[in-house]
Design a protein around this nucleic acid. Structure first.
Lengths: 342, 342
DNA sequence: ACCGGCACCGTTATCGCTAACATACGGCGC
DNA sequence: GCGCCGTATGTTAGCGATAACGGTGCCGGT
């Protein structure tokens, strides 16, 4: 009820050691469960620590031991819904390894990414998980020189610094194109975000166009957006593109959220999906489970990506084997109800 | 192209100081922009640091200066969509204060919260922003003894440790009840999550029931869920509750996501909304902008909450004024299209 | 009685950086 | 010339923990 001390000086090991009558070293051993301590002193120490409300100072600990139990996780955005998913699979996997993820957000800006990376590396984490393969030269240099395991995730189309876990967005786009063509669609439009720094979306589009080209087809129209609620944007863009190019018979969206918006708009308009027009998105958001008509999409293996990445970091922080794994996962087409059955 | 050194020993201030021919202290001053350094040496040092690829060690810096530029932000979940929003407003507000948010997630578990808090406090952050007012006794004690500004956010119905920024969920529920009754609805059902630790949802329900009681009405039926895609669950639950109690004329959902699922189901079924049945959710997700029929909801001021909380932390970390502010924000009813006009 | 080994615990020396103080130096006023 | 000030830099002493090693009992074997 009354304050333990007058001026609240933060507690240190010394306080606990004095309170329990043993040396700081022994207290440290007890608190870390490391080294031999008799059961009786262990009890004494724990009791004293609890009574004082002692919280160890990891800053000092990390400096002395040269070990930090943090893993830097750097992603472009939290509002994308994709990334929280990856994040949670990372933290699940890290749960009982003693490692802890720390998140940094770049807003799809390479400069911000460089900043965030610098900031995080200055805490000397035991590993870095970072989205994408495209970084500023300085950022890349930092990753190479950090001397810790680095896992670049989400994308395998390019050269990685160290380990890489992801899917080929190029091939994902290509496969989607093939599926669409196989289903008999020919007048195809693309709708996506304007962000020039979303390399994965760009690669999907490139792969998609390549797939179309193989069948001698070109994109009939495209529409881009920036900012705002993706669902609402999907709705607007769909209306816009169909007004401009009414004979489109398929719309490929760069993500599920705008795809879902487009789907809602089509349903509202009473358009026959997938007869008159087919739709597909990308990501496999479980959000889509809530629609009566299920949008075709491609599962981006987000959970698996996070898990593998975490495993690599955890594995390498124990045994210091030399890394450089590249794990390519295979995205799965989920045809849903918005592509005609062939 | 070739590695700078054979065995890559992490760089220290000493390396930079040797490379630039000045003392470590001067290098430190340059890198922190603190104290007087002549322009010429500043240049020399910066150049050396860049050439070596030096990244400062904040661990050592923090230990020496007893200052850490981190703010712990502790929230129940990242998949709720509400919290990423709060997070981003916090980090926007902190952007140019030199402070940096670090996120911890509790999964709505008080024990996990206690763990995460302990973990974060052991890094000696300059402040804590934590969701909710309900904590374990140990967690509360830690917050009280940490000697740093603490802001509990989202909720004001209860006793805070230090500062509090949020809305009254009890009153939010109550107001929603009044609005619904004013619109002429009488057979009212509630649909929500089963989580016993979601105190804010509980308080909304209590306030809602209180509002109904004032008009001499009781909840006609309730339905709860746990886990899974909220949109899909909303759909299922709505079907279930309406099968069980067909004469309900209003459904109050504990969040917008399940509300949206319910709305989709009603539209699919061709049910007249808001004539035959009214619907309302809670949170004001901008996701809802994408629907042709807009769900009634209540804006929970998430952006404002994050901003104010960050301001309090930032303000107090500069001038050490004594805290204890309580800021109650006023949620706004957004009637949308799913409540009859009175 | 002596020695080796084990279980337990203390001492010392960092870890990389910064606060606080000390020093060097040039210029200025008197 | 002397003292003094201000600027630009160096020196010293920690910050709070841990690694590495050094004791100290106690036991059992010989």
């Amino acid at each position: 009820m009354s304050r333990p001390t007058e001026t609240r000086r933060p507690l240190t090991l010394r306080d606990v050691s004095e309170a329990s009558g043993v040396s700081e070293m022994t207290v440290s051993r007890v608190l870390r469960n490391r080294g031999d301590v008799s059961e009786t002193t262990r009890e004494k120490v724990l009791q004293a620590a609890k009574a004082l409300g002692y919280v160890p100072n990891k800053i000092a600990g990390a400096l002395a031991s040269q070990r930090v139990n943090l893993v830097a996780v750097i992603i472009p955005s939290l509002s994308n819904l994709v990334f929280p998913k990856v994040l949670s699979s990372i933290s699940d996997e890290l749960e009982d390894t003693g490692l802890q993820p720390v998140v940094g957000v770049t807003n799809y800006s390479p400069e911000k990414e460089e900043q965030v990376l610098y900031e995080m590396l200055s805490w000397r984490p035991s590993g870095v998980i970072i989205a994408g393969l495209e970084h500023t030269p300085a950022a890349r240099a930092m990753l190479e020189n950090a001397g810790i395991p680095v896992v670049e995730i989400m994308d395998v189309d390019g050269e990685g610094v160290d380990s890489v876990v992801g899917i080929s967005h190029r091939r994902a786009g290509l496969h989607m194109a093939e599926a669409i063509i196989a289903a008999g669609y020919r007048r195809i439009g693309f709708l996506g975000s304007k962000m020039p720094e979303d390399h994965r979306a760009r690669k999907r589009l490139e792969g998609f166009q390549e797939g179309l080209a193989k069948a001698g087809i070109e994109l009939a129209d495209t529409e881009f957006y920036a900012g705002g609620s993706a669902l609402a944007k999907g709705r607007e863009m769909t209306e816009t593109i169909l007004k401009r190019t009414p004979d489109l018979d398929f719309l490929y969206y760069s993500n599920d959220m705008i795809g879902a918006g487009g789907l809602l708009w089509c349903l509202d308009q009473g358009i026959d999906v997938p007869g008159r027009i087919g739709l597909a998105g990308f990501n496999g958001l479980d959000l889509l489970d809530g629609f009566s008509v299920r949008l075709a999409t491609m599962n981006a293996c987000r959970g698996e990506i996070g898990r593998k990445a975490a495993q690599i970091i955890a594995g390498r922080s124990q045994s210091n084997m030399i890394g450089g794994e590249v794990i390519e996962l295979e995205p799965v087409l989920e045809p849903g109800d918005t592509i005609r059955k062939a």
